[in-house]
Design a protein around this nucleic acid. Structure first.
Lengths: 142, 142
DNA sequence: AATGGTTGTAATTATAATGGTTACATCGGA
DNA sequence: TCCGATGTAACCATTATAATTACAACCATT
């Protein structure tokens, strides 16, 4: 199982908006770059808006960044699109046998360790801002 | 989306087998502790066997560890049950528009960063052996 | 050999998430 | 008022998971 593409799509959306401040960033326009349906983009943008990352205009259309790129980490984006519900990356097998010593205790032991693993991943995402990412992207575009 | 419970089930299975060397660890017996169907256990054990972690006897039944617990890391188990195919935790959105500068370059930039995040998680799993886990588990059981 | 119990696996089902799509009400400037 | 964009609901196809039934293959024991 992979982490939903909503996350990478969201990063794509934010990058586009920041690099094209002259163009009106409508869902249709963005969808063309991502190569998907405008509704998919609107759903992702809706979550970014809810998280306070985007401002979206209804009548005129288009979205603008609500925060400075330097103040948006990849973890913010990751959390915004709710790609992993309630922060639990690993699925525990529910209801192990409480009468078995192992079944009764394995969950607690695993939780500790798996949270550490999950956290290590999130730390990396937290250390990278959209500003850095867009800088690398810009350099690549030339 | 969460990472399949196959992983936590596999850890449960290995813990059980190591802590109950006197009992014959059949799929049915293990399934009772995990609280699932024996076939689910057999499928997981099949992958552990394929990865060289388990020995499984067909006639008499039961499984035994093929490696010392100290030589089995959680990453070994994670990889064995193929919970994340071909090592790609994050799903990229496929076929971004190559005519858009952002669409044409975002994939490469993201790949680098997301691999780092994935790797950080796997490093944590690699640092923990089944021996340590079982030790903590044993202490908890008392 | 025949047997009994176990593994290996195919097939089926229910459930859930995803991503795409159509449709349409809602909203806001011009 | 009107036009164009957003916000959602509804629906669908696809995919992965987990559970389950069924049964062939296998092997120590009798």
């Amino acid at each position: 199982m992979k982490i939903s593409s909503r996350f990478t799509v969201a990063v794509h959306v934010l990058s586009l908006i920041s690099l094209n401040k002259n163009v009106v960033s409508t869902s249709e326009w963005i969808a063309e770059s991502v190569n998907t349906n405008p509704v998919v983009i609107r759903r992702v943008m809706g979550k970014l808006k809810k998280a306070g990352l985007l401002d979206i205009r209804r009548g005129l259309g288009g979205a603008t960044l609500q925060r400075n790129l330097a103040d948006i980490t990849l973890l913010d984006v990751y959390k915004a699109v709710e790609v992993v519900e309630d922060g639990e990356l690993f699925q525990m097998h529910e209801n192990p046998n409480p009468n078995c010593p192992v079944g009764a205790n394995i969950q607690d032991v695993l939780e500790l360790i798996l949270f550490r693993a999950q956290d290590a991943m999130e730390v990396v995402l937290k250390e990278i801002t959209m500003e850095e990412l867009v800088k690398v992207l810009s350099k690549k575009i030339g």
